[in-house]
Amino acid sequence: MNEVYDVVIIGAGPAGLAAGIYAGRGRLNTLILEKGIPGGQILLTDFVENYPGFPDGVVPFELMEKFRIQAEKFGAKITQDEVEKIEKKDDLWNVVAGQGEYLTRTVLVATGSAHRKLGLENEGKYLGRGISYCATCDGAFFKEKDLAVVGGGDWALTEALFLTKFCRSLKLIHRRDKFRGEQILQERVFENEKIEVIWDSIVTRISGSATLESLTLQNVKTQENSEIKVQGFFISVGLDPNSKFTEGLLDLNEWREIIVKKNMATSQPGIFAAGDVCDVCPEQMATAVGTAVAAAIGIEDLLRKY
């Protein structure tokens, strides 16, 4: 007979690791499955300034390392494996992954989210040849270059500000006439001499030869087209939940986020969801942690009745 876990947590980002700390302290037999390394999507950001408890900000890579150590200290086991599906097996759940199958009484889906693509022709062709979804990863390749960023949320503003460390000029393209991102980030963007904001505009064409050379923009109010010459284009138009492997099993909303109820329970008994992948979490590290802790407590409650 295979080992049966009390809870299998899918994803070791802020949500999965926070739930792991609580589940471990609850003395649950806890397994965390992570397809890459612990830390999740927040590792793509260079610096976090809005996580409570860190008045001088914190490097996500260092903070996530501490989350991991804290989860393991209380007994959560972290294994590298990529989950393909969850299926019912008698009164248990069987989590099927690339390297093995894991039987468990409960599951917490904490798989987070991934960069949304614009869906334009040539977007794939110039990936790594001028197009990027990660300023922290690729910014340094664009020293003294002319860049564009598209988006208007926290992420886009953070990416633009980070890129000004390297670039000569930066155009920040946004489809509306105001940003959604934090006010403090907006102030920094408006004060930064390298950044020019292009309002009410969308990118309609990506052009180049071997590498990216220009973007065609359309003003959504006047319908006017214009072309800008850039060597780098950073896309930060939002995040899509990593929920594909739960399709057909869990109820998802129109954005494919997992619908959660009280205690972060999903439409299937014994399966919970927390963090960016669920419908109530506004893509912040603090809310990922908060919803995950609520889920871990819900899971402990359920197992007590088991």
Binding site: G36, L127, G130, C137, F141, A210
Partner: peptide
């Protein structure tokens, strides 16, 4: 012409046979 990391390049006989850009499974 690498402008993004991680990039994985597979070399065989001195030539690039595959280019993989980004953190893929």
């Amino acid at each position: 012409s690498v402008m993004s990391i991680p990039t994985l390049l597979l070399f065989q006989g001195g030539e690039i046979k595959e280019t993989i850009i980004g953190a893929v499974p």
